[in-house]
Design a protein around this nucleic acid. Structure first.
Lengths: 162, 162
DNA sequence: CGATATTAATTCGAAAAGCGAAATATATTT
DNA sequence: AAATATATTTCGCTTTTCGAATTAATATCG
């Protein structure tokens, strides 16, 4: 029996993923950034304060790649680099106000095209879908051990200089 | 009220997307292809027989880009190019057996990490999640008007030469 | 303490991605 | 048949991406 519930769910989930995969590329075009630049900026903005290494790991890019992308984001004045005073090997990355604005004002394609249809569903179904997707998110979150959790200041040396 | 059900669902959905976004990059590495090559190959394999133009549209790449990526996939003997006899402007793209094998044998990260947890859920919950995700897929599918449906032979001229 | 490893990030060189514009060849329209 | 439209490739160029080597700072251990 190849079509058990898990397989069917995966198949449906893949359809969802495929539909959004394309939206993310359109989004990058809309913001005037490349897909990678957009991903990196989003990551930095979400983490508030992080380092190239953490971003590289979370996004599965090489450190060298992050360096060049951040170079551009800095040139565009969307991101700021500053040395970590406590561990001078590290650079701390933060989004500038402009960078935050790009992320915040990015046309939310998912939102635009999705919400309209979603709200037309009967509320019991909305509730059911919410419950299901939250369950899914839990299943998936636990999975990515490498992709450090959002807002992890763990990797940043916060100790006070003596 | 900013936290209506739609917003909550979107937020959870984004967590799911983020988790898989990263997985897809690992996958490309695992198959020895670049991410783009993997996407294109997957697209060709899924559609069984298609054209550069259709792939470009579905993936939101320029035609020129598809040409170069297909060049590589052909060189790797994963994809075949052949002129369409009915419309000689078109090239028909098909995955070779080797290409199909790459797609089929690709470690299914989603599957591996997901199924294990999923099957541990009580079956009523599995059923609920399946129903919800299928509903979601419907909502999203209808959205991407550009991304032609899978297995579309519509764009391929099938008429018999006279 | 001082030598040695480890860690964080950058620079460099090269392959590949990605695209717009021009070119080529085939189809369709008038 | 000429003009127009379509499908794809070729060309030139910029950007992405990464591995390897490099630089600098921190950690370890004898």
């Amino acid at each position: 029996m190849t079509s058990d519930i898990a397989s069917l769910t995966l198949r449906a989930l893949r359809r969802v993923l495929r539909a959004t995969e394309i939206g993310s590329r359109q989004l990058a075009v809309a913001t005037g950034l490349t897909t990678s630049q957009w991903l990196v900026l989003r990551e930095i903005e979400a983490r508030a304060k992080t380092t190239p290494g953490v971003v590289a790991q979370a996004l599965q890019f090489s450190q060298a790649t992050i360096t060049t992308i951040v170079d551009r984001l800095v040139a565009l004045d969307l991101v700021q680099r500053q040395r970590n005073a406590n561990d001078k090997r590290q650079f701390l990355l933060t989004a500038t106000q402009a960078g935050r604005n790009v992320v915040i004002n990015a046309p939310d394609l998912l939102h635009l095209t999705f919400t309209g249809r979603f709200v037309k569903l009967p509320s019991w179904e909305q509730a059911m879908i919410l419950a299901a997707v939250e369950r899914l998110a839990l299943l998936m979150d636990a999975q990515d051990i490498d992709a450090a959790p959002l807002l992890d200041s763990a990797a940043i040396d916060q100790s006070q200089p003596k």
